[in-house]
């Protein structure tokens, strides 16, 4: 009986964010008559794509009990790399550029992973350092200037649609799907849960903890690199200051999605909801012409409330 009740509460908690999301949608559809228009929905989906991709990578990291503050900067590096390769004509293929930029992201993530798993530097510090290093690399590579005049073909990713769906949204859906399968359906994902749940138990049970940790940060780096290509194509330039504070939106999406900062609990589904909630809030406030200062306050309050709600429910679960 007691256990059933725990399960019920758990399910309610899972629904909680969905309910909040639905409430937001209902309220907004009355507050603004364009909110539910096809075009606005498409806008929102496009606007959340980059954050969603970052958040998928971040979900894995936070699930192990870590954090990655460097994804915004890694995104800038990969955007600059992709743009300069295309601009100076050294690489022609859009696919190849995307792959190279994602690999660059993955390599920076590898440095994070090695320092965290092998040198035992706390994730917060490792990725804080990488945040600076990568930002510096982005400025160095671009000489501090945006890289513009990119080939028109490149803009396909960020600006064209396929069967009515923007390409970047399709790419986001693919990343989310891969993330879901990886976390929920593969051994790797299960090991991530184990490490977040109890790293020592996982180690004793024969899980190669450091390898999994390294892979997790590589994955976050690849996601950031991939997002960097998409953002560059979207804004038609490689910007060294792109992605400033994006790590915070990604972390917020993951946390709002119910992933525990202690690791071991969470899901890609939750992260999807979290990213949508953040995207909707930002969109709604623009539709309602909320002043710039109020927007910041509102977003901060929402993040705080989400975390408080989450803590309340886990406390309730512990007490029962």
């Amino acid at each position: 009986m007691q256990i059933n009740r725990t399960e019920v509460i758990k399910n309610l908690d899972r629904f909680k964010m969905v309910i909040i999301l639905l409430l937001m949608i209902i309220v907004m559809s009355f507050a603004s008559d364009v909110f539910l228009s096809g075009r606005n929905i498409m806008n929102v989906v496009r606007q959340i794509s980059v954050n969603m991709i970052l958040a998928v990578g971040m979900t894995f990291v936070i699930m192990t009990g870590g954090i990655d503050l460097s994804v915004g900067s890694i995104l800038a590096v990969s955007g600059v790399v992709a743009s300069s390769l295309l601009k100076n004509g050294s690489v022609d293929s859009i696919l190849l550029v995307t792959i190279i930029a994602s690999i660059v992201g993955g390599l920076l993530g590898l440095v994070n992973g090695l320092s965290i798993a092998k040198l035992k530097v706390p994730p917060f510090i490792s990725t804080l350092a990488m945040m600076q290093i990568a930002r510096g690399i982005a400025y160095l590579l671009s000489n501090g200037r945006p890289i513009v005049d990119l080939p028109k073909r490149f803009l396909i990713i960020g600006q064209e649609a396929f069967m009515g769906l923007p390409i970047m949204v399709i790419m986001m859906i693919v990343v989310v799907a891969i993330g879901y399968v990886l976390l929920q359906r593969t051994r790797f994902g299960r090991y991530v849960y184990y490490i977040g749940g109890n790293e020592e138990a996982a180690r004793v049970s024969g899980v190669n903890v450091s390898r999994i940790l390294i892979l997790v940060y590589v994955l976050a780096g690849i996601c950031a690199g991939f997002a960097g290509v998409i953002l560059s194509s979207r804004i038609n330039s490689g910007q060294p200051q792109a992605g400033l504070t994006y790590e915070l939106y990604a972390i917020a999406a993951v946390v709002i999605g119910g992933t525990s900062l202690n690791g071991g609990i969470g899901s890609i589904g939750g992260t999807i909801i979290g990213a949508i909630i953040i995207g909707l809030i930002r969109n709604s406030m623009n539709l309602l012409n909320v002043s710039p200062f109020n927007q910041m306050v509102v977003l901060g309050v929402v993040i705080l409330l989400a975390v408080i709600l989450d803590m309340q429910s886990s406390k309730r679960m512990l007490k029962s």
């Binding site: 909110f35 806008n43 979207r234 910007q239 930002r282 539709l287």
Partner: peptide, 25 residues
């Protein structure tokens, strides 16, 4: 009609304008 900070960034200018167009067209 509306005002918002794009923080000097192209990506923000794009995002905010998309939303404005929805409201005011």
């Amino acid at each position: 009609l509306a005002d918002m900070t794009g923080e000097w960034k192209r990506s923000e200018g794009l995002r905010i304008t998309e939303d404005w167009i929805q409201t005011y067209g």
